[in-house]
Nucleic acid binder design. Structure first.
Lengths: 203, 203
DNA sequence: GGAAGAAGTGAAGCATCATTCAGAGCTTCC
DNA sequence: GGAAGCTCTGAATGATGCTTCACTTCTTCC
């Protein structure tokens, strides 16, 4: 007998999938990719290990989805800040600050997205998303050059440097992770980024 | 019956161990940590898998030795260049260039040392060696500030940025890996590094 | 030359996980 | 209410790859 899923059932499945991805993301942020076994993730989502395969064909596919959702959001936020109205140099400063601040607010996830050991499928995805971060920074740097605010340079290298610098700071944050030093860190990081792009020092 | 190894025998063992580490390093540079199984490494060294355990208590111990030998050499070379005679800014430029050039000349190994997915023991070692690179850069930046050649800044952040930037460039080299573009890349990278530290632009 | 002890071998042992599957429990539709 | 089809379960399966170990080969010493 032919049989169709009701909309409610479809919604339930979709919700279960979202819930699985969300919990998997938490697990990855807490314990890293290596420790995020199918069993651990399923337990966190409150389902059996086998049920993971109702939603994803493999562990790698789930891992990639976790990575894409989290990274996609970061790329969007960074893009919005960098493409806002105004002076390219100011936008760059705000972009670096936003990117770094968000990463520092969720270090576990940021580390997982940017640097933590991961299976090859996630590694490939990471490469692709890093290029997107870099492309966004590069675009803003080129606008700064076009506006005569930045000296001639290869914007792609400056962009890579910015991405790498923020990553480094996250991997081993300088100083203790309290409020005060985080703010000081951001100030230094933004200043470094502006020097790096060759912006004239603030008066 | 008590029995001592002859000096010749001791030398043979030491040589065998060195040979194993050297071949393992090659394997890692070629195929990465993940694919460098005990069997693959033993095959490359021309010994049986079990014989690896004559020299190292575990695969992780061998991996750590491979990492330390290769990274230790890089730290030494960088230290020598950065601590040579002369102007801190010039030394910094030469240090960045040397570090990047050496990495670009052996990309497989550089990638393995700086970024490739690896087991936790190697990851921990990597963190330690990155701090050593950063400490060397930071020292030079502070000397530049003391000499009035660089503006006030947190040298540790600049150092992290330099390490990160070079790492990024290696992970996904901009442009094709031919002679000409490598040289152009180095020029841009050094220029970026000097801006990053706040050195006055060359006339 | 031969006994004693060390190094080398490589196939078996073992641990770890991703993945599967046969059955239990639900949902749909008449 | 009940048949048909779907989701969920979790123990069994299977693959991978480090590590062990009984045995062979080589080295030392008398």
């Amino acid at each position: 007998m032919a049989y169709r899923k009701t909309p409610a059932e479809l919604r339930r499945l979709e919700t279960a999938r979202d819930h699985l991805v969300a919990r998997a993301t938490e697990v990855v942020a807490e314990v890293g990719w290596a420790q995020a076994s199918v069993t651990a993730v399923a337990d966190a989502a409150g389902i059996a290990a086998g049920s993971v395969y109702q939603h994803f064909p493999s562990k790698a596919a789930l891992a990639v989805e976790v990575f894409r959702r989290a990274s996609g959001h970061e790329v969007e936020v960074l893009g919005e800040v960098l493409r806002a109205e105004g002076d390219p140099v100011e936008r760059l400063a705000r972009g670096v600050e936003t990117f770094a601040r968000r990463a520092l607010e969720n270090r576990g996830l940021a580390y997982a997205l940017l640097a933590a050991p991961a299976e090859p499928a996630v590694g490939a995805e990471r490469l692709a998303y890093r290029l997107r971060y870099r492309a966004l920074f590069a675009e803003t740097v080129e606008q700064g050059m076009a506006a005569g605010l930045l000296p001639p340079q290869d914007g792609r290298i400056t962009a890579a440097a910015l991405t790498g610098a923020i990553g480094e700071v996250l991997v081993d944050p300088l100083g203790t992770p309290d409020e005060g030093s985080t703010e000081a860190l951001l100030v230094e990081l933004v200043a470094m980024a502006l020097r790096c792009a060759g912006a004239a020092p603030a008066p």
